[in-house]
Nucleic acid binder design. Structure first.
Lengths: 187, 187
DNA sequence: GTTTTCCGTTGATCAAAGTCAATAACCAAC
DNA sequence: GTTGGTTATTGACTTTGATCAACGGAAAAC
């Protein structure tokens, strides 16, 4: 719980009252490996903070999984498009380990936006940070080759590579497992 | 000016006082074709609303232009990453026609966020909408082939194709002009 | 009106990732 | 330990877009 408070205070300094109201809306959940927080077709009506654990987002295209994101301890996540628009998710959100998360419902969050100015601002910071995240990922597809995307990943996020099977990394990079294997081989 | 008011009211219903304060910060600018609103290396400290005209974002990679975005009358735009982070822009923002825009400075906008709750909320909606925009574009690179991206563009934005030279469209789609020409040929 | 420049097309070849298939390495379950 | 399933690698071949080059047409400049 403290981890969330620290995280949020890094964005906006919250008063005790604000934090108390926020905390009231948090629901602690323990989820087991391979279970789903969200499935394709469902609407994502929550944000979640990972106390401990690891999650991935993926969709299926013609029977084949496409991994689109990973999240780790200390991350906030959501299918933010579905969350914002109310449209059904294309993605599954799956726990890759037994995990502990803190969830907040969309309706509760919207009420908190109304009630506390600083939390409205927090909502802006959420959106801005998520914007920067996808913008960076888009850039990696616009400007970098698969090999460059892989090298970047190694450079900035090498712990991810140990924690995640290579075929999922390949999918995340937008290539096939065989191709990633070859990229790694020709060094 | 009315166009902006209409646009904003579509996001949040603004009071007269809120709109008046917002309007005070708007600076009308007339820019000529081929002039730049922002160059590589500069920090983007504005949002702009296009009253009339057309803009493109591009970067140069090894002497070659890469077009990353187009904006038209009625759009709000900014190099939002540079705007948020204060880092220098990789992109040029160029007027593709003589255009009329309304600009608001970052410092003024932040002050408006502080002053009016609804404008803080407006800022959240800006961020959320921009998030959805890049998220959709990212998806087009994650899930679609160049041909599919082109067909999508034809389907949803055919006016763009008439207004913009084909080699820029190719660049926007992430391919070379020769390849786009071939994609169009094999129908 | 002619020249020049730019843009789009087409052809030949190259490079890189995808596909299909076989095999090897590893882990988990029994 | 052995078995069975999953993951990673490697090889042969295909597909797709990039590259290099040439050409034609259209718009702009003179």
């Amino acid at each position: 719980m403290d981890a969330i408070k620290t995280y949020l205070n890094g964005l906006v300094k919250l008063s005790d009252a604000e934090w108390a109201d926020f905390e009231k809306c948090l629901r602690k959940e323990t989820v087991t490996r391979k279970s789903f927080l969200l499935k394709e077709g469902q609407v994502c009506n929550f944000l979640a903070f990972i106390g401990n654990g690891m999650f991935r987002f993926y969709t299926t295209e013609g029977g084949e999984e496409k991994v689109t994101a990973f999240f780790f301890s200390g991350d906030f996540f959501s299918n933010y498009r579905s969350f914002l628009t109310g449209f059904p998710s294309r993605h599954y959100i799956e726990a890759m380990q037994d995990s502990v998360i803190f969830m907040i419902e969309k309706k509760d969050l919207l009420a908190l936006y109304d009630k506390h100015r600083n939390l409205e601002r927090l909502g802006r910071f959420f959106a801005e940070n998520l914007y920067l995240g996808v913008a960076n990922r888009l850039d990696s597809f616009l400007f970098d080759s698969p090999k460059e995307r892989y090298d970047d990943l190694v450079r900035r996020n090498s712990k991810l590579l140990n924690a995640i099977p290579q075929y999922m990394v390949a999918s995340y990079l937008g290539i096939k497992p065989e191709s990633l294997s070859r990229i790694r081989a020709r060094k």
